[in-house]
C-alpha cells in the first residue's frame, strides 16, 4: 500500500513541477547554476572512471583471448561495445545516482528541515517548479557527459591495449570501427535521456517529501541512491527489450 502511495505521490509531484512556472529570468539563473552543480562538476569523476574502466575492459578481453584464430581486433570491438552499450549510459548513471542523486536529495531535504521550502510556499512560489524543474533541464545535458565517458572509455582501452602490448594500435582502431551500427548510439542516448529524468526526479521526490531532521536527510539520501539505481536498472532492461530485441 505504501508503495502505491509513493508512486502516486511521485506522479503528483511531476504534475506540480510542470505547473505554475517561476519567473523566466530567475529560472534561467537557476538552470545555469544546476548545470554547473550537476553536470560540470561531475566531469572529472566521470573522466577518471571511464578512462580506467575502458582500460580494464581492454585488458580483460585480451587476457581471455587464448585462441589464436580470434583476431586481435576483437579487443577494440569489445571495448567499444561494452563502453557504448552499457558502461557509459547505464553504469555511469548508477555512479551519478550516488554523486548527483545524493546531492539533490540532501540539498532539498536540508531545505525541508530548515523550513526553506515552507518559506518558498508562503511567498506563493511553486516550490517544486523552483527546485526540481531546473534540475530536470540541467540533466537534459547529461548525454554530453556520456559522450565524454564513451570517448574516454575507448581511449582508455586503446592506451591500456597498446601500451600493455596486448594489441597494435591499428588492430585496436580497426576493431573499434568494425561492424559499427549507428542505431546503437541512438539506443544509448535514448536510454541516457530516460536515466537523466530518473536522476533528476527520484532524488528530488525523496528530498522534497522527507520528514524529520538531519538523520532523516541521511536516510533519504541512501534511499534515493537505492531507488534511483533500481529504477535505472529496470528502465535499462525495458528499453533494451523494446529497442534492441
Amino acid at each position: 500500500m505504501k508503495y502505491l502511495h509513493d508512486i502516486g505521490s511521485y506522479f503528483l509531484m511531476l504534475k506540480r513541477v510542470f505547473g505554475s512556472f517561476t519567473k523566466t529570468s530567475v529560472l534561467r539563473h537557476l538552470i545555469l547554476k544546476e548545470i554547473n552543480d550537476l553536470i560540470i562538476t561531475s566531469l572529472p569523476i566521470v573522466a577518471f572512471i571511464s578512462f580506467f574502466v575502458g582500460g580494464v575492459v581492454a585488458i580483460q578481453t585480451a587476457l581471455n583471448m587464448d585462441n589464436p584464430i580470434i583476431p586481435k581486433t576483437l579487443i577494440g570491438f569489445a571495448t567499444r561495445q561494452s563502453v557504448i552499450l552499457e558502461f557509459a549510459p547505464t553504469f555511469m548513471s548508477i555512479i551519478m545516482a550516488g554523486k548527483v542523486g545524493s546531492f539533490i536529495t540532501s540539498s532539498i531535504g536540508s531545505m525541508r528541515v530548515t523550513e526553506q521550502i515552507d518559506a518558498l510556499e508562503v511567498m506563493g512560489i511553486n516550490s517544486l517548479n523552483y527546485l526540481v524543474f531546473p534540475k530536470i533541464v540541467a540533466l537534459m545535458f547529461y548525454p554530453f557527459v556520456i559522450v565524454v565517458s564513451m570517448f574516454l572509455g575507448i581511449m582508455g582501452g586503446w592506451v591500456a591495449g597498446v601500451q600493455g602490448g596486448f594489441v597494435s594500435s591499428s588492430d585496436f582502431l580497426a576493431g573499434v570501427q568494425e561492424g559499427f551500427i549507428p542505431y546503437q548510439l541512438f539506443y544509448a542516448f535514448f536510454k541516457t535521456l530516460v536515466f537523466s529524468f530518473i536522476l533528476a526526479t527520484v532524488p528530488s521526490w525523496q528530498g522534497f517529501y522527507m520528514k524529520g531532521g538531519a538523520l532523516e536527510v541521511g536516510k533519504a539520501s541512501t534511499n534515493s541512491f537505492v531507488w534511483t539505481s533500481v529504477l535505472i536498472i529496470a528502465a535499462n532492461y525495458i528499453i533494451t527489450q523494446l529497442l534492441l530485441s
Partner: peptide
C-alpha cells in the same frame, strides 16, 4: 482560486522560527 491565493501570498511576509534563510 489559485491565482488569488498566489496574489495574497505576495502580500504576506513570514518570519520562520529558524529564520529559513536560503543557505
Amino acid at each position: 482560486d489559485d491565482e488569488e491565493q498566489r496574489q495574497l501570498r505576495e502580500k504576506i511576509g513570514m518570519l520562520f522560527q529558524g529564520g529559513a534563510l536560503f543557505d
